[in-house]
Design a protein around this nucleic acid. Structure first.
Lengths: 179, 179
DNA sequence: GTCTATATTCGGATAGAC
DNA sequence: GTCTATCCGAATATAGAC
């Protein structure tokens, strides 16, 4: 459909420029110039600049919601490995989106669409920790979460090669303590 | 000395606001208002806005240089533990500065003062990996580096409590492979 | 749906008096 | 060393024609 071609093109270009120069480092003018349209057209398709970013990260956010829901149904024994596999899959699939989210955090944590992201990652941390209440286990879980995210953002290595290495280090770091 | 009181006050306030609202989210006007002086005074003490941030993170950067230099003198057997202890100490001492550096990265990676930071962290990663050439070991090292940084930035837990938990998870994650 | 033109605000930075 | 006043560019967003 010709109807949404421009809109899609805006998203494509915005993703590229946000990734390269950061959200704040990319202006509507930059996006419009690259798309080959005017700023007004951008703001016809999206209410404001933030809306472009939110549309971009929405699929990843939805995926995170799904993952957390899935983990809720897993027992304490299996939750750690399920969290590891699910999270690694997710961040490798949405590598660019993860980078965007980290780029705009914490400024965007106030956004209505983002205020549940924090609880979602908290639930994920609990999963990594095997639902342990030990602060040391939770610290380990946060290290793994943040570390994996940092690597998929920064490292350009292929996902196929990265995946087993990430899962392996996560398993080692999160060996179950004395429950 | 009354001479440098204003300058110090600028740095103190800037650190606070940069931490709370981010570097780009803080204007010279904001800093000046909080300090109780004019923007012109800010720019009398610092050539431009970037210079304020650079002055703020300089001690942490110097510390990182020292750590990497120290690690160069440690043999392959001991380098992993030395890197862990040294890095955890460093980021806990310069928690706020680490947060600032991550806030402005990658925009600031081009800055002349920052172009060596990348090689420094690369050297640190090599230390975490026990100077192993195995890509999986290097991935693990990057997870640990990024994960520890993420925790000290985000988590508000006391350093005394955090330290042993960080060292423990790092040791587990970086168990030596088959050299 | 897309454009041009513009309103408006805000940012960093400078000039020059005191 | 600090101020007031101002410049200039950039940024988001809007108005209204086509």
């Amino acid at each position: 459909m010709v109807r949404i071609r421009t809109r899609d093109e805006i998203l494509r270009v915005a993703a590229e420029l946000f990734t390269r120069y950061g959200f704040k480092g990319t202006s509507l003018h930059d996006i419009a110039a690259e798309v080959g349209c005017s700023k007004a057209t951008l703001l016809y398709h999206f209410a404001h600049k933030d809306a472009i970013l939110l549309a971009l990260v929405e699929p990843a956010r939805q995926s995170l919601i799904d993952l957390v829901a899935r983990l809720a149904g897993v027992d304490d024994k299996g939750v750690r490995d399920a969290a590891i596999d699910g999270f690694v899959d997710l961040v490798l699939r949405y590598r660019r989106e993860v980078a965007l989210i980290y780029d705009v955090t914490p400024q965007f944590l106030q956004e209505p669409a983002f205020d549940r992201v924090r609880e979602l990652t908290d639930a994920l941390v609990a999963g990594f920790a095997g639902r342990s209440a030990d602060p040391a286990d939770q610290t380990a879980a946060k290290v793994v979460l943040g570390g994996i995210a940092a690597v998929v953002i920064d490292d350009k290595t292929d996902a196929v090669e990265l995946r087993p290495a990430l899962v392996a280090v996560a398993r080692r770091a999160l060996i179950p303590g004395k429950d």
